[in-house]
Each structure stands twice: as C-alpha cells, then as structure tokens.
Computed example of a mutant assay.
Amino acid sequence: MDEEFWQLRWRENKIAFHENQPNELLLMHFHHLGLQAGDTIFVPLCGKTVDLDWLSAQGLRVVGVEFSKQAVEEIFARRNLVPEIDVFGQYLRYRSGAIEVFVGDIFELSKDRLGKIDAVYDRAALVALPNTVRGRYARHVFDLAKGAPQILIAFDYDQRQMQGPPFSVPSHEIRELYDDLYAPELLASRAISGPLSERCNGSENTWLLKSKQATHSKNKWSE
C-alpha cells in the first residue's frame, strides 16, 4: 500500500470519498449482518467516516484501522471526546467509549490485537487498493475476523474513465477474490451517484459476504 499517497491526500484535504452523513447503503443493508448490542464490528481503512458514529449508536463496539493520524484525531474531535491514546505494538491506539481505532498499516494488524470480531463493514477499503494488493487484503481481513460476515460496497465502471482510487472492482473480480472464502451475495446495485458520478459512469454494488460453512448450515436446516 502507498502510505505516502494517502497521507498526502489527507494533508491536502483531497478526501471527496468522505461523506458527512452515514452511508445510505449501510443503513439499508446493515440488518443482514444480524448483529446485537455488544457485538464488535471491524471497519478497515476507516478514515474519519461518520459511519463509526452511527455504528456505535447501535450499541456496537467499533474497531477501525487507518493510516492517517489526522483522520483518526478528527473522529474524536467531532464528537468532542478526548481519547485515551496508547502505544500498542507498532500502533497508536485511540479509544473512547465504544470506538477504538488503530493508527498504522492494516497488514501489520493481528487478530490477537483486534480480539473477537462479529462482522466487517468495508465501504472504502477494497476499492482504495490497487488490484495487485486486493487478494492479500481479502485474505487478511478474512483471517483477522475469523470469517465473520461482511457488508462490502464496491464500484463497477470502465477503469479507462479515471485512474482511481476509488478503483473499479467488478462483480467477476469480487467473486474471484472471495469465492474461496465466502459465498458472495449481491444485495443491491445502483448507479454511481455523488461526486464520483462526475468522473465516471457505472454501478455501486452492495455485497453480503458470509462464510460458506454458515451458508451451508443455513441451507441444510432450511431443507
């Protein structure tokens, strides 16, 4: 991953991917994760997304990881919180209430540091990565979360329209990346909207990733 690229984006405030309201697709499809108050959700490459606030308001413990210290500090500043900050291995860890965020490289993060994860929410992580890294990322997050279900939001557009990020990760690539790990289910597809629609035309796809073992058990009991 190109850490300096993302650090520069944050320093120059080139963060058009940031939304000021909870993501509409998260609100629409969150229930598919089947979470209960007290469960833990992992948000990789979380930036300063307000989705963290919404998730914590559902009674969840929310754990994120992010390269940019600036972004992490803004998460707590907008909530008027003074986080507890400690050195945790090679990370700085920011904590307050139900939100905990690690500052550093996601690929250096271990499941022992994260603890038990009940679900993953990926809105802007996979699509931020070049195709040479996505396979490693998909496997790493699967291992970190021990196969917990995921809501994944991805874009599908002609990559010749723009260089990215966010990159185009079409349906066939989602299946190539995750078929060995999950049974990917396309929950919804809609036209790309917002600032990104000014740069490209295509679809924004919401996926539910559940382990094949869990899917098989569900089908077995429903027979």
Rank of each mutant, 00 (worst) to 15 (best):
S96P: 02
K116E: 09
V87T: 15
V101A: 02
R113D: 02
Y94L: 11
L144C: 11
H140G: 02
R139V: 04
G135H: 13
S168E: 09
E73Q: 15
P166K: 13
R160T: 15
E84R: 08
A124E: 06
H172I: 07
S171Q: 13
A77K: 15
N131F: 12
A125I: 06
Q58E: 02
P166N: 10
G147T: 12
Q90S: 14
A57W: 02
E100H: 12
L55N: 04
G97M: 05
V62N: 03
Y94R: 10
P149T: 13
Y137P: 07
E176W: 05
S168K: 05
K146W: 08
A148V: 14
R123K: 11
I153P: 06
S110H: 00
S110E: 07
Q161H: 10
A119L: 12
I117Q: 04
R123Q: 00
D180C: 06
E176G: 05
N131K: 12
K146A: 15
G59D: 09
D180G: 09
L144D: 05
T132I: 12
R113I: 05
V63S: 03
G89R: 04
R93M: 08
I99C: 10
V141T: 05
R136F: 00
E173A: 02
R139T: 01
S96F: 03
L129C: 06
Y178V: 07
L129W: 04
I99V: 14
S96I: 02
R175Y: 11
V133P: 09
Y121L: 04
L92F: 13
L92S: 15
P149G: 14
E100S: 06
A188W: 14
L177D: 06
S110Y: 02
Y157T: 13
L52G: 01
P184R: 10
R113F: 07
S96W: 04
F107R: 00
V65S: 01
R134D: 11
R78H: 11
A191V: 11
A71S: 12
F107L: 01
V141P: 00
Q90C: 08
E66L: 00
S168L: 07
L81Q: 15
K116W: 06
M162T: 12
E185D: 11
Q159A: 15
L60Y: 10
G89V: 08
L109S: 00
E73S: 13
R95W: 05
D158E: 13
G59H: 07
L129Y: 08
